[in-house]
Amino acid sequence: MKNFKIKNDYKNFVKGLLSLNYLVIAPKYENGILKFSKIKNAAEILSPSEYINTVSSTKEYFFPQTEPVIKFTFEGKEIFLKDVEIGKKPKVVLGLRPCDAASFSILDDIFQYEYKDEFYFTRREKTIIIGAACESNDESCFCTTTGLAPDSSQGADLFIEKNNEEEYFLRAVTEKGERLVEQLIAEVEELEEEPKKNPLYEKIEKQIRKKIDLIEAKKWLDNNFENEKWEELSSQCLSCGSCAYLCPTCHCFDIVDEVNYNSGVRRKNWDACQFDLFTLHSSGHNPRDTKAKRYRQRVMHKFKYYADRFDKTLCTGCGRCIRACPVNIDIYEVVKEFAPLVEQN
């Protein structure tokens, strides 16, 4: 695949992108927090060196927190159904870190497992993902454990990196990405040679928490569905949904009908496995009735069930759940309880 140099600065490149009539979504400070928001002009953009990562992930643009599935009205005894329209404008999501970009290859699998989720894939197909390599990290990051690195481009269509001379260049990862760059030819220039790797990325990779052996972790999980450790690991959990709602890969949802006297809407809302209501049956029975069982579900789903089905882990090591947890439950430390670190030379 081709590589392209960004001719002027990063902001000009974004200007070019905005002129192509895409809805551009990128990290932006809004009401005091850094989150992926719609960008209206290039001045608002943060360059990849200006942030570590956003508070919430990008999944809300593909799998919104709340999404109408169908609308309906009643007239007498008749019910009329109406499909829900999804925005038609093509989108560019810009500046995702490798951990967020990688989440799409995970979500794609689950949203077409047994049934293809039309809503997710319509949005997915219309969107181009531009990743950006990490230029800094914090104590929560652990992407190396899940097989990623500060400069891994997995899941992205285009990837922004710095070369040896501290200049930004674009790596076309997919054809979709390459087609976008071709439209931006005023802002970019094709590079003949493969650019030299910036040593910064290797340095960051070393700063990140040590790699845990997830194969060993899975082996332990395979045999320890019943283990008193779960009780201990979850004892301080307060059953909020911070971890699941900020996670780029958590995808549980709940379907709810909101009905007025003559109309209604069926909605898909995010759900979180730590809630008391999670998997509560209408009979009143709940197979996961204690914190320990719900926390086990969280860890098992991430590192065992998903691995059984798709041979991947349902975690990208972004560290959002660790940053957000009010009582400092740290999934990295939890997995380390039952799996060794990988020996590094």
Partner: peptide, 8 residues
């Protein structure tokens, strides 16, 4: 509620 959803 209904207007915002159409955009995404």
């Amino acid at each position: 509620i209904f207007l915002e959803e159409a955009v995404i």
